[in-house]
Design a protein around this nucleic acid. Structure first.
Length: 429
RNA sequence: GGAGAGGUGGCAGAGUGGUCGAAUGCGGCGGUCUUGAAAACCGUUGAGGUGAGAGCCUCCCAGGGUUCGAAUCCCUGUCUCUCCGCCA
């Protein structure tokens, strides 16, 4: 959500920032509605002030027994009442029109975000590890050690396409990965573990900018609840409506949750394997910070995510998304792409974004500086740390051996009860 | 699912038709005292809109209604809590 004041003060700057996202200028249209809105507000308030004044006199007239005067003023107040009703409705309509319009405008990119049209213009800023030379590398679902424990046919029977049924060693490694990530984040990175609801209300989706524009990407129950597309939604919405003490910040959360996405519009993409599912697991990180701290916090979060991959010995590269590839609510986004030998490509495994005060405005999350009167909006950030399913793919594909088995990363062994590999026939050993 | 109670400022919690944007406490801020801190005491302290400003307007969960006048009465919605039932 944008600050109408900033648009008023600097419409050219606003349009210029929109242009970086490839959007047409909107400021003149916004300011037109805003001017109309303010005119209606002024008119309504003037009428209200008149009514309030007359209303006070009514009481006085009554008290003094001036019946004629009382009746006259009473009629006047009644007239004003009708007028006020109309003016207030008009003011409200204009205000809603403005809010609706602002709600659909994406966040403005930070100054340092590279300009570009699409993912081809993203800029690599870090590369770690060297992909191992694997002859005839297989995709995860074709690796002999994995095949028996990753069943797409049965999942389809139960739930349709884009679901998976994991069992045995594969399910165990998947679980170990999630535990591993959570333990690192809580014990070493100082994040607070949270277990959130995965069904949320409209307000939480709106506050984290998933609504009104992207409702079709998520699932909604018949009762009107949303299945979360990411635990960014409940984690961030914790702060909604609060005025926090300055000293309360930063807040750093992590959660392991199921995530649900309809994947509308991605038909035919990544259809094989478990890269893109309707239901998946993710360990999420969310930070709520002071405005001046959010840029440093984003780098910190990025390091937390990259560190997981380094410990798991998975080669990756980090890119900063260009203006044309960023999500709706982001001011700046870093994507981490893990090396997948089976695809001979780097694929997204984490996305770390700062939204500035964009979400905070929508959910009215504020803090008060010591000694200051006015509350200010906090900054909110979110990042995957990491997508568990995709991390499982990376671990399996990078660990595949010529004999069909999979060597599991050393760092993970303690979470596997000391086991180190999956044999070609699918046993943890 | 049934019955009941309630939603008030950063927090807790008074207030049941005008004198209430709202007692009191906590917390915050400023001060007195102190070598410093604590304690004590004094003062101060809600949010939003609009306006160049003085100011004006709105806000006691939300939306309707009654009334000259609503935090206060009525209706609807919503959320929370308690009890009963059911239940992993």
């Amino acid at each position: 959500m944008h600050d109408i004041r900033l648009i008023r003060d600097n419409p050219e700057g606003f349009d210029a920032a929109l242009a970086k996202r490839g959007l047409a200028p909107l400021s003149s249209q916004i300011l037109e509605i805003d001017a109309l809105r303010r005119a209606k507000i002024t008119a309504a308030e003037t009428a209200l002030a008149d009514r309030n004044a007359a209303s006070k006199q009514v009481g006085a007239a009554k008290a003094q027994g001036l019946e004629d005067e009382f009746e006259r003023l009473r009629a006047l107040v009644a007239d004003k009442k009708a007028e006020i009703g109309i003016l207030e409705d008009e003011a409200k309509d204009e205000d809603e029109r403005l809010q609706d319009m602002l709600a659909e405008i994406p966040n403005l990119p930070a100054d340092d975000v590279p300009e570009g049209a699409d993912e081809n213009d993203n800029v690599e800023i870090n590369r770690w590890g060297t992909p191992r030379d694997i002859a005839d590398a297989l995709e995860h679902f074709d690796i002999p050690a994995v095949k028996g424990g990753m069943d797409f046919e049965t999942a389809a029977k139960i739930s349709g396409s884009r679901f998976v049924l994991m069992s045995g060693a594969v399910a165990r490694v998947n679980r170990a990965l999630a535990q591993f990530m959570l333990d690192i984040h809580t014990l070493e990175n100082g994040l607070t573990e949270v277990n959130t609801p995965v069904m949320v209300r409209d307000e939480a989706m709106y506050g984290t900018d998933k609504l009104p524009k992207f409702g079709e990407d998520s699932y909604r129950t018949e009762e009107g609840m949303w299945l979360i597309p990411t635990s960014e939604v409940p984690l961030t919405y914790i702060a909604a409506g609060h005025v926090m003490e300055e000293s309360y910040l930063p807040r750093r959360y992590t959660a392991h949750s199921l995530c649900f996405r309809s994947e509308a519009g991605s038909a035919g993409r990544d259809t094989s394997g478990m890269l893109r599912q309707h239901q998946f697991e993710k360990v999420e990180m969310v930070s709520v910070t002071l405005p001046e701290d959010s840029d440093a916090e984003q780098k910190r979060m990025l390091r937390c995510a990259e560190d997981i991959l380094e410990r798991l010995e998975i080669p990756y590269r980090t890119v900063v998304l260009c203006t044309g590839d960023m999500g709706f609510g982001a001011r700046r986004t870093f994507d981490i792409e893990a090396w997948l030998p089976g695809q001979n490509a780097y694929r997204e495994i984490s996305s770390v974004s700062t939204t500035g005060d964009f979400q905070a405005r929508r959910m009215n999350a504020r803090f008060k500086r010591a000694g200051e009167k006015k509350p200010e909006f906090v900054h909110t950030l979110n990042g995957s740390g990491l997508a568990v399913g995709r991390c499982l793919i990376a671990v399996l594909e990078n660990g595949q051996q010529a004999d069909g088995s999979v060597d599991l990363p050393t760092a993970l062994h303690p979470w596997l009860g000391g086991k180190t590999r999956i044999t070609a026939d699918g046993q943890l050993a």
